[in-house]
Design a protein around this nucleic acid. Structure first.
Lengths: 323, 323
DNA sequence: AGGTTTCGGGAGAGCGCTCTCCCACATTTC
DNA sequence: GAAATGTGGGAGAGCGCTCTCCCGAAACCT
């Protein structure tokens, strides 16, 4: 029997007589034969692998990634899409300049067929590097000007406006903002959206403190706000973790939530339901976005589309107990 | 110029005249040449890649992994060791039976040269599957009987004893335990160690509630303990997250920590310092253990040792404010 | 019956590297 | 001066697959 026949059986292409198929499979099982992926890749120019890259330019990278449920949601969204197509998902972390270079080299050399990139910081050079390397790439979040890669994104400004309008509608007139770190890709949009919506109501001065997307930074931010602006009656935090921290602090200080101060979060992560009181928050459908991101890449790899696609999701306000 | 010469330059083997080296490198840079990893692997039977596998048999896998700083610490420990040797670290998640099978197949086919496995649950079949596939494997945590793979581990029983002795020495006579989930690899050791040490002092009945390694489960466990055993004067939690949750609950109930109830955690993670009050805890040097784990695998891959090695670390008690 | 299509399977090239030979030439040694 | 030694570089096999071509046999048409 020729190698070609075996290859046909293993890859399920063209017709092979059923009995021959069976005998081939038997032999494979008996010998414990495993096809060599390297040899296969060499000729197919495919690896059957897609990389999910978490990239950051700042420090304390892993501490951020492995304590924010956000990334787990991304993984949750991506996995089933890839598994369904028998594509092996591979998580890559790019925590430093050196790591980024090594990673691009690795992918260029055929480490994966494409990359799903989740940049933690704005101005991350990785997407541009991957595009330059000619690797099919889809981003979580809008690419910088000129970068022609696929992406999924949330209309962050709209989300922030939802929060602002809700606070205004419920009678809050002195809102404050716990903003995302300046370096976060979403920082600008969420801040601007919130401010604009309030400005439309004549509120021009809004106290702003930057947080770092962690519970602890939310506490500290809340402490600062309360000290500098004791009369605020609402807080919008750029993610749920910070909102949770804010709630904790307010509670400890005996400030009633939502009685005295209303709190709105962002993401609708598990933290929103765990916070006391449960958080009103802007829902970001991270899992669906991540699944769409994987879908766009797969389409591109299948050649279904030559141009990388894009998809923008609309946020929804989820009202719970904190407003 | 022959392919052989280029190969020699790229891989830096044998002598090549400096000027030829330079011209080769120039050409590489000019053409934008990238060696094909598949072709290289085909002949060298190496990929230059090591897999770090997070495996669990239970559910809500990603939620656990991406909200417990423990895994970030493992990654932190592993990365530098591999980067130093120019080995590409690849994170793989095995969240289901199907995923595990696919993953083993992937690695068998040459997805990586070896695997570092962090099992989240006891009785995880993955290590045995990898050994059967003939893949060099090192475990975080002791392998089950009969599995001949390398591992690093902490003397968990000793850690629990440290906690018990400390509580006893500081005058606590009615301690309780917030234990790890039954399925956790460390659950038995930490429970037994704690119980034995107390038994040696004549304390035979210790209230035990199982937690799930999360802050929230720690709160709930503490609530149960306090309700069923209002007179307890100390709590040992099997990790810092649960200890933090316990502290939060106690605080909210107006129970003084450490005044009325002392709390000891386990791990010495960032959560220990973030908790109010700061946690007395059993330090597990996760980063060093993870680095050692990577080191053991690298040694095995280098052929420095044929038998897989093992290393057991000793815990240390860190006294802070909660006792 | 002869010709044409369909179908199953073999032969063999070639994917892009590495690595072992081997050879040409320079340098040293007796 | 010839032989021994060293040094740099080319030739070519071969890693384990896939895939195109081709061929023989069976099935279908006219």
């Amino acid at each position: 029997m020729s190698r070609a026949t075996v290859s046909r059986v293993v890859n399920g292409v063209r017709n092979v007589a059923p009995d021959i198929q069976r005998s081939v499979r038997d032999a494979i099982a008996r010998i414990g034969y495993t096809p060599n992926q390297a040899a296969r890749s060499l000729v197919t120019r495919r690896t059957g692998t897609v990389a999910l890259v978490l990239s950051a330019t700042g420090r304390s990278f892993t501490a951020r990634v492995f304590s924010d449920p956000f990334f787990g949601r991304v993984v949750d969204g991506v996995l089933p899409v890839l598994r369904r197509r028998a594509i092996q998902p591979v998580l890559l972390v790019a925590e430093s300049e050196q790591a980024r270079t090594q990673l691009v080299e690795y992918l260029r050399q055929g480490g994966a067929d494409g990359a799903l990139v989740v940049p933690l910081d704005e101005n991350d050079p990785l997407p541009a590097m991957l595009m330059a390397a000619g690797l099919p790439t889809v981003l979580f979040g809008r690419p910088r000007d000129g970068e022609q890669c696929g992406f999924v994104d949330l209309d962050n400004a709209a989300g922030a406006r939802l929060a602002a309008e809700h606070l205004w509608a419920t009678g809050r007139r002195r809102p404050a903002l716990i903003a995302a770190p300046v370096t976060a890709p979403t920082a600008g949009e969420r801040l601007d959206g919130f401010m604009e919506a309030l400005a439309a109501h004549g509120v021009t001065a809004v106290p702003v403190v930057r947080g770092r997307f962690t519970v602890d930074s939310g506490r500290r931010a809340m402490a600062r706000l309360l000290k500098d602006h004791p009369r605020i009656d609402a807080v919008f935090a750029a993610n749920d973790l910070m909102a949770q921290g804010a709630c904790q602090y307010l509670r400890e200080q005996g400030v009633a939530v939502p009685g005295t101060v209303a709190v709105v979060g962002f993401d609708d992560s598990v933290a929103a339901r765990k916070a006391r009181p449960q958080l009103t928050t802007v829902r970001q459908p991270v899992e669906r976005m991540a699944a769409a991101m994987a879908g766009l890449l797969v389409e591109q790899l299948d050649g279904a589309r030559s141009e990388p696609g894009a998809k923008v999701f609309e946020p929804v306000l989820v009202v719970r107990e904190s407003t």
